[in-house]
Simulated assay, not measured.
Amino acid sequence: MTDQPLRNILHSPKASGWLIKWAIELGEFDIKYKPRTAIKPQALADFVVEYTINDQEVGGQEIVTPEEGEKEKDEETTLKEYWVLHFDGASKIKSSGAGLVLQNPDGFMIEYALKLDFPTTNYEAEYEALIAGLGLARVVRAKNLKVSEDSRLVVAQVNGEFESKDETMAKYLRVVKGILTQFDEWYVEHVPREKNTTADALSQFASSEVENYPRSIYFQVLKTPTIHVINLIAPVGVAS
């Protein structure tokens, strides 16, 4: 709870230096920013009544009988486990960058930042991030993949809703669709920008002039567009 615009400051496209580093470090936590307001007496009373622990709860968690626990466990095992990929790209006058976050079904995250050392548009930078993320997902042998991004255009092109008339974008799209066929199941969805903040921070960091980067992320410089590289199976920097 805060009366300061912390989220807007940390994830601003104009952020640089230490602000980007803080955005990356804090990105591993599930932080929700809400405006701090005064608590009225009646609201506080309602809160106490609503969240009072009853006889069926201990420590705020409902007691589950062994039979119920086994039933829930069986239901969970029937659900398919999906890896989750968030990606984003940033194109600036001096340099461009791509960022991605790959999370396994247990919640463990791999953060990857790519500095694109060649001229690129913002959408091309996003495709570079997507291709690197898909390649990384293949390396860790993910079978089912959920891909999330805040660019409606890229999501619509991958889902076949929009056609790519630009030749370069069409090449990127063919590469992406080729890699996606190697997963058992996958789907790509559009998410609001506030749900893609870590990938966005990584792309902003990679496109900045900051030399020192957090050790918790993988960082690499890409000299050539992926569509010009023969080996498109492995992600950047990973041998097939």
Rank of each mutant, 00 (worst) to 15 (best):
Y213Q: 14
V48K: 09
T168Y: 10
S164T: 10
E67D: 12
V238S: 11
T198E: 03
S95W: 13
E185A: 11
T2N: 00
H190M: 07
L114E: 00
V221M: 08
D3K: 06
Q103I: 08
V58H: 13
Q103K: 12
T224S: 12
Y187W: 11
F87G: 00
Y218W: 14
L102E: 05
L180C: 02
V191S: 02
F162S: 05
S16V: 01
Y218M: 13
N144S: 08
V140N: 09
E70M: 12
P5V: 00
E163I: 11
S91G: 14
E124R: 01
D30M: 02
L116C: 04
T52H: 11
E72V: 15
I217S: 00
A125P: 02
G178T: 03
P192A: 05
K115L: 06
E209N: 15
L134W: 03
W186Y: 15
V191E: 02
I233Y: 15
Y187G: 03
N8S: 07
E57V: 11
S240G: 13
I63E: 12
K223H: 15
G17W: 02
S164R: 08
E149I: 03
V101E: 04
T198H: 12
E163W: 09
A137I: 00
R174F: 10
R193C: 03
G135V: 02
E111T: 10
F118Y: 15
Y172R: 09
E149F: 05
N212T: 14
Y187K: 10
R174E: 15
L85D: 01
A129H: 01
L232W: 08
A90Y: 10
T224I: 15
A113S: 07
K71I: 09
L145C: 02
R193M: 00
N104V: 01
N212K: 12
A239Q: 14
P105F: 08
T168S: 11
V210H: 11
D106V: 10
R141N: 14
L145M: 07
T77R: 15
S207W: 01
I24E: 01
I20H: 06
W83N: 05
I227W: 09
K92A: 13
E70A: 12
V158T: 11
S207Q: 02
A206W: 07
I31H: 01
D46C: 09
H11G: 01
Y127W: 08
V210L: 13
D46E: 12
V48A: 06
E189L: 07
P5Q: 05
E111G: 04
P13N: 03
R215P: 01
W186F: 15
Q157P: 00
T77F: 11
E76D: 11
R152N: 13
D166W: 09
E185T: 06
E167Y: 13
S91D: 13
A98C: 11
G97K: 01
V58Q: 14
L134K: 00
M109F: 06
L145N: 00
S203G: 09
L100Q: 08
S208T: 03
I217A: 04
E67L: 09
I24L: 01
W22I: 06
K143E: 15
P235H: 01
L19R: 04
S207L: 06
S12E: 00
Y82L: 06
P235C: 07
H190P: 07
K32R: 04
K34I: 07
V236R: 02
R7L: 03
F219G: 07
R36V: 01
K223Y: 14
V48W: 09
Y82A: 04
V210M: 13
K14E: 09
N8I: 03
G133K: 05
E211S: 14
V84T: 14
P105T: 06
